[in-house]
């Protein structure tokens, strides 16, 4: 069936199979930051925003995104680069495979709760698995990023 999806601001109209996932759709349009990890909705690698809400594209049919706005990491270059640099500074990217999904969900967290507590961070990001790092680096990066963003805002 024919769908129209607004992917990172670009209107795309094309035929998709009813069982095609949004993951496959966005990757076929060059959004290779969106990865297929577990395919069982546990790892968070395939996180995208559907109308600004983080969802798992491996479990979402592309047809259900018809007439909706879909955003991947490629559509948030500034926010992703800002926060991503903190992950790098804190050594939180070893293989780096989980980073795009983590960055997407962290951005969703900052938008929803600009000053999360440690417990709120852990709970919000519980659906993003990292098999390298033990999450300490990610935790430091998030806290450092929040401090940097707040001091930047105060200066302005």
């Amino acid at each position: 069936m024919t769908v129209t999806i607004f992917l990172n601001g670009n209107k795309i109209t094309e035929d998709v199979s009813p069982d095609e996932t949004l993951l496959s759709f966005v990757r076929s349009h060059g959004c290779k930051s969106v990865k297929c990890g577990c395919e069982t909705t546990n790892c968070g690698l395939c996180t995208v925003f559907l109308e600004d809400t983080p969802v798992l594209s491996c479990a979402l049919l592309a047809v259900r995104a018809d007439q909706k706005k879909v955003t991947t990491l490629e559509g948030l270059p500034k926010e992703a680069e800002e926060f991503g640099s903190f992950l790098a500074d804190q050594g939180a990217e070893q293989c780096g495979f989980c980073n795009p999904g983590l960055i997407m969900n962290a951005i969703a967290l900052f938008r929803e709760n600009p000053h999360p507590s440690d417990e709120e961070i852990k709970r919000y990001l519980a659906g993003n698995l990292c098999r390298c790092s033990g999450y300490e680096g990610q935790m430091r990066a998030i806290k450092e990023f929040v401090r940097w963003r707040d001091s930047n805002e105060q200066r302005q």
Partner: peptide, 12 residues
């Protein structure tokens, strides 16, 4: 419900 997998899954 708050520990059901992750926020992304609970959004779906």
């Amino acid at each position: 419900v708050q520990d059901i997998v992750g926020v992304q899954l609970r959004n779906m």
